[in-house]
Nucleic acid binder design. Sequence first.
DNA 1: CTGCTGCTTCAAAATCTTCTGAAAGCTTGT
DNA 2: ACAAGCTTTCAGAAGATTTTGAAGCAGCAG
Lengths: 181, 181
Amino acid sequence: MTDSSVSAITIARREFVDLWGQMANHWGINRTMSQIHALLMISPEPLTAEQIMEELQISRGNVSMNLRDLINWGIVRRTSLPGDRRDFFVTEQDVWSMFQIILRERKKRELDPLLSRLDECMARAGRKPETPEDKAAHESYVKRVTELRDFFTTFDRLSSALLDNQPGSLAKAVKLIDKLV
Amino acid sequence: MTDSSVSAITIARREFVDLWGQMANHWGINRTMSQIHALLMISPEPLTAEQIMEELQISRGNVSMNLRDLINWGIVRRTSLPGDRRDFFVTEQDVWSMFQIILRERKKRELDPLLSRLDECMARAGRKPETPEDKAAHESYVKRVTELRDFFTTFDRLSSALLDNQPGSLAKAVKLIDKLV
DNA sequence: CTGCTGCTTCAAAATCTTCTGAAAGCTTGT
DNA sequence: ACAAGCTTTCAGAAGATTTTGAAGCAGCAG
């Protein structure tokens, strides 16, 4: 297919894959992994590794490893078609569910460890020291770590609430906050 | 100061700086930048570039550039002490304000551009095509992009609401969401 | 059993990011 | 105007991450 005959939808799809890849950068996520995810999101049917290779112009090994990671995150799964030996891949179809899966993983991998480590930080600070300079250091340290712990605890509660809830709950939350103004 | 005479508070401070640096990785933020931020957060008084260099064992140039970035983000500012020609640096003292500043910047740099680009993606998809395969591609593309747009619009509203609000609003919102279950 | 297809792995290569240190730029005091 | 003290910049070095491609594995059909 020559460039001059590429359909509008093909161009739009590439734009979206690129967009999703760029976003990944800002979030500490591998760009290619994100592009594979984008491709699966907008595909009406499951894709093979081969199709992904071709569309993104990347190696077989790269596709394989990134798919493994996406599967570990729980947002992609393997599927198969009768009479075809190849693996096919699909991503979670619902945006809210996808968000919940990602939130659940990030909470587990980042928020929970963050809270324990903040506790550790508090534990290590020890008792108020005697020397005046250490005293000031101790005081502002304890204050700040405590504040951060409180803040992230609230965040943790928000995550839990969103994980327990139905699709519309984020929208509801927004309305509730608006009313608090 | 030899290792054996390092006070508990010094060890705790290092633990915190390290923690904050690790967290940065997960969020697509430069580790050193985050460590400088951590150091400023837990310091009772403003610090000089020299103090930061020594504590983190990094070069003068590195400190200078990362401080510039932190200042551009709006979470650190320059200050000065009478009778001292050196620049001193402090970070926003309040955790909620700090969160708002970061949220405001990330919204401006990521969320707003994301929404415009999603609109662009929709615009480029064009009218429903005639060939059956393009039709299926078009349909699932439009569906997915629309869903994502809606999702991030809600997110955008949440950001705006949090930016307009007082410290406790996040906590209040969490409680309200809990009641919705 | 053998050959074929497709998947995974991993060491080395390519690429991207971050850091250093020397040079140039300011500002202030003399 | 000059020197001293401090800061900024940026090209190249160092370090980290990502990608490739070839070797090896696994399941299947003949």
